[in-house]
Computed example of a mutant assay.
Amino acid sequence: MDSYNREYNNSKSYVTIGIIAANVIVFGIMTIFGNTLDAEYMAEHGAMYPEYVSKGGEYWRFFTSMFMHFGLMHILNNMVMLGAAGQMVEKAMGHVKFLITYLFAGICGSVLSYIIMLKKQDYAVSAGASGAIFGLVGALAWIVIANRGRYEGISRQQIIIMVVLMVYYGVSTSGVDNWDHLGGLIGGFLISIVLYRKKRYNESDITL
């Protein structure tokens, strides 16, 4: 019975639900006090803007920007994708490793976006959970690879199609921070190699 209960609890997406709730709460508060479609308002309240980071040393924006969104459709799209990808990755990795993967990927996305903007001297206000969500897709890709090409009904080919469609959406849609997506995807893939361990079952795991 104990083994069953432990496996049952691990399958619950507590962290995914918590992250979604945090994003919704932040969005609600920011909507009450201002316009989330206003880039200046977003930058003033924690979105990533290269000049504030480089000149002001406000590196905390790499973190806070992950929980901010430009308008209702932005947060709706991201939360649907987070719910879908998050529950699978959290079940595979466990709650703590999932949270580490999510945050690490999101920060990687923000950092890469920041570096590219500085290099091009083309600054823009960046915010959203999409870098971290791309990181979950990257983590899921490694999980599928580690499980010999299939995990929970997801195949290597399906992961490739998912990544291609997400990249295509980013490239074909204006106002999307594709460097943030790429940084998150790479970060999520790499950290999952370190953190993920394929589950091994033996007779002692089976209880009636």
Rank of each mutant, 00 (worst) to 15 (best):
H45Y: 08
H95W: 10
H74A: 11
G57V: 06
L136M: 12
V96P: 13
M42V: 01
P50K: 07
M79R: 06
F134A: 15
I100N: 03
M117S: 14
G109C: 14
L37P: 02
L118A: 09
G57W: 10
K91T: 08
N77H: 09
F63Y: 15
L112G: 13
S130A: 14
D122I: 00
M42S: 01
F63Q: 11
N23M: 13
G46L: 06
M73K: 08
N77G: 10
I133W: 05
F33V: 13
M79E: 12
Q87V: 15
V15I: 15
G18F: 13
P50I: 02
S110M: 09
M93G: 07
H74D: 14
S126P: 08
V125N: 00
G56S: 13
G57Q: 11
M66Q: 06
G109V: 06
I19A: 05
G83L: 13
K55N: 13
M66D: 03
I75T: 07
E51P: 02
G109L: 09
W60R: 14
E40K: 00
I143D: 02
C108F: 05
M48K: 04
T16F: 11
A47C: 13
G57I: 07
F70Q: 00
K55R: 15
S113P: 05
T16I: 11
A92L: 11
E40G: 01
T101V: 08
V111S: 03
K91M: 09
I143H: 03
L72S: 12
E90V: 09
K91W: 09
E51K: 02
M30Y: 03
I32P: 04
I107C: 12
S113I: 03
I133H: 06
Y123F: 07
Q121Y: 05
S126L: 10
